[in-house]
Design a protein around this nucleic acid. Sequence first.
DNA 1: CAAACAGTTGAACAATTATTCAACTATATT
DNA 2: AATATAGTTGAATAATTGTTCAACTGTTTG
Lengths: 117, 117
Amino acid sequence: MTDESVCQCDHIHETEVSNTKKTMLKDDDYIALSTLYKMFADPTRIKLLHALEKSELCVCDLAALLGMTKSAISHQLKALKLSDLVKFRKEGQNVYYSLADDHVKLIIDMGLEHINE
Amino acid sequence: MTDESVCQCDHIHETEVSNTKKTMLKDDDYIALSTLYKMFADPTRIKLLHALEKSELCVCDLAALLGMTKSAISHQLKALKLSDLVKFRKEGQNVYYSLADDHVKLIIDMGLEHINE
DNA sequence: CAAACAGTTGAACAATTATTCAACTATATT
DNA sequence: AATATAGTTGAATAATTGTTCAACTGTTTG
């Protein structure tokens, strides 16, 4: 099956397309990238990340801050944890969450720049 | 209704929470931010953006490059257009798309950095 | 003018996902 | 040991979303 049969096109700019093809990454890389950005693609999660820029907070603090249930927050923190965007430490009954690294702040700031222009 | 009644928590670190609250943005800002990142949160769209880093391409080119139908590509380009991530120019039957500004490349590169560590 | 092609669009369908709810674990307190 | 609280978890539900399909617009060419 040719590319043309998939895209239903006859006249393709072949040199540009083949040049671009060389610069493209593996499919898995794009999936990994989009999976990362999915974490920033939800208001609740981006609030959590932004809140944790300031200081570490426990699940209760975050739930109170966002006005949401502990369960909802815990579910989202789990997703952020799986994407290595937050880390945590346990202390007694509390679990304190914090940002995993500086990229998180940089990515959020980059987005804010785009919004505010 | 108090925050506590929503989050089901009794012992909240009040000073940390109220300090963090001061640094938080308006809800609309978080919605705008997450809406922006939603555009990067899909493999097809991030491929389109990455492809357009190299040179402008028409819908047919992009469809051929990604091995997808013109319709699917057109739908995603519309979303990217609405988020001001791509711009376009018409020439005869063709519509050439290109990146709207440099932020797009920066945001993708930032994500790649996080992946490759 | 008619045929061919590039591109767009809306509806439909399938897949993904955010929150809720209830049940559960684990730690701390009395 | 019993109770209370912090946090997690899995299933269920509702909402969102990506692709397909068919029909459409607009431009070019013979």
